[in-house]
Amino acid sequence: MNESQQESAFVAELTGMQMPLRLYVQSLLPGDPATHDVVQQANATLWKKRGDFTLGTNFKAWAFSVARYEVLNYRKQQARDSRLVFGEDLEQTFAEEIAARDDDTERRHEALKGCLEKLRPQDRELLLHRYTASAGTLEDYAQRAGRSVGGLKVTLHRLRNALLGCIEKQLPPLEAES
């Protein structure tokens, strides 16, 4: 492989694992909307360090360790005392398991679309509005929606359960590779 082939192999590796990378970073920063920025920062760092990477070795493991470093950096910048952070061992387990997992993001996303259609329109709207960037905290949202935080929390939880149940049913079993 020449330099540009390696370059493009690297690009292919990098683009091919964006979803697992996001999942990993988000699992370390649950609920944090900054995940996206941290992932981009990790991408930039990976690109800068691509000379350190030998093609054919475990790209995900390497990328995840770089991403975790960016997460630590981000936490440092935030310096939020109140933040609850998982122990290092557990974070390492996340990395290993997510790296080993089939990337089913697209299939789940596709299934999710169908499942959202099955919700009552008002439920669907409530749920999706919760996930728009401007929704803010659950409190803000509850206030605007004119509902109690507790009630809203329960409703959202119930809706997510319903969606996950539906997605599971829609997902065709992965065809065994022969």
């Binding site: 996001r22 999942l23 988000q26 699992s27 649950p30 609920g31 998982f86 122990g87 061992d89 557990l90 387990t93 996340f94 398991e97 997510i98 997992r101 993001t105 789940r108 996303h109 999710l112 679309k113 959202l116 749920l127 999706l128 509005h129 919760r130 996930y131 728009t132 960037a133 997510r160 969606l163 996950l164 997605i167």
Partner: peptide, 26 residues
């Protein structure tokens, strides 16, 4: 989460769902 792989699987699934919903809402 530390001891139960099923708990972690559920965790990934729910994190993934919130990501997908965010994406969808967007």
């Amino acid at each position: 989460l530390s001891v139960d792989p099923a708990a972690r699987a559920a965790y990934y699934e729910r994190v993934q769902l919130s990501m997908a919903l965010t994406e969808h809402a967007r």
